[in-house]
Simulated assay, not measured.
Amino acid sequence: MDYEEREQIEGWEMTPFECLDLAYGGVLREKYVQAGSSTACIISLNASSGVLRSANLGDSGYSIIRSTSVIHRQRAQTHFFNCPKQLTKLPANAGRKFARACVDSPGEADTYETKLRDGDIVVAYTDGFSDNVFPSEMVTICSLVARAGGAEDQQVQNMADRMVEYARQCMKDKTRVSPFERDASRQGMYFRGGKPDDVTVIVGLIRETS
Results as ranks from 00 to 15, higher is better:
45 L>H: 09
94 A>F: 12
59 D>F: 07
145 V>P: 09
41 C>M: 15
150 G>N: 01
103 V>R: 14
149 G>Y: 01
59 D>E: 06
139 V>D: 12
87 L>H: 01
138 M>G: 15
207 R>F: 14
90 L>I: 02
120 D>S: 04
4 E>C: 06
189 M>C: 08
125 Y>S: 13
41 C>K: 10
171 M>S: 07
145 V>G: 07
85 K>D: 01
65 I>V: 13
185 S>F: 00
114 T>C: 08
42 I>Y: 15
181 E>Y: 13
148 A>G: 07
91 P>Y: 01
5 E>F: 03
87 L>N: 00
17 F>T: 00
93 N>M: 08
46 N>F: 10
193 G>S: 03
109 A>V: 02
80 F>S: 14
56 N>F: 06
197 D>G: 06
130 S>L: 07
174 K>E: 13
70 V>T: 12
99 A>L: 11
144 L>Q: 15
208 E>F: 15
90 L>N: 00
45 L>K: 04
68 T>V: 10
185 S>N: 00
81 F>G: 01
174 K>L: 10
60 S>P: 01
27 V>W: 05
126 T>H: 02
67 S>W: 05
176 R>V: 11
137 E>M: 07
83 C>T: 09
128 G>A: 09
158 N>E: 13
157 Q>H: 14
31 K>F: 07
122 V>P: 13
187 Q>I: 02
76 A>N: 09
120 D>E: 06
15 T>P: 13
108 E>R: 04
127 D>P: 00
149 G>V: 02
156 V>K: 04
150 G>Y: 02
184 A>K: 11
179 P>A: 04
92 A>P: 13
92 A>L: 08
207 R>E: 15
159 M>K: 09
147 R>E: 14
126 T>P: 00
84 P>K: 01
138 M>I: 07
100 R>F: 07
156 V>D: 04
180 F>A: 08
135 P>Q: 04
114 T>K: 00
210 S>K: 11
5 E>H: 05
111 T>R: 06
183 D>T: 07
167 A>I: 02
71 I>G: 07
188 G>L: 04
84 P>V: 02
122 V>C: 06
54 S>R: 09
194 G>R: 04
174 K>F: 08
124 A>T: 09
174 K>M: 11
118 D>E: 14
149 G>E: 02
119 G>M: 00
90 L>W: 01
107 G>I: 05
16 P>M: 02
21 D>T: 12
27 V>E: 02
53 R>G: 00
142 C>H: 05
19 C>P: 09
37 S>R: 09
23 A>Q: 10
144 L>T: 11
133 V>Q: 07
162 R>T: 08
28 L>I: 07
60 S>T: 08
3 Y>G: 03
48 S>K: 12
195 K>N: 08
99 A>Y: 04
124 A>N: 06
61 G>S: 02
144 L>G: 08
115 K>D: 05
195 K>I: 06
195 K>T: 07
117 R>H: 14
54 S>W: 09
2 D>A: 06
38 S>W: 03
64 I>T: 05
37 S>F: 08
157 Q>W: 11
47 A>Q: 15
103 V>Q: 12
1 M>C: 09
150 G>L: 04
177 V>M: 03
176 R>L: 15
21 D>Q: 14
122 V>W: 03
81 F>C: 03
141 I>H: 05
150 G>I: 05
54 S>H: 10
161 D>K: 14
201 V>T: 01
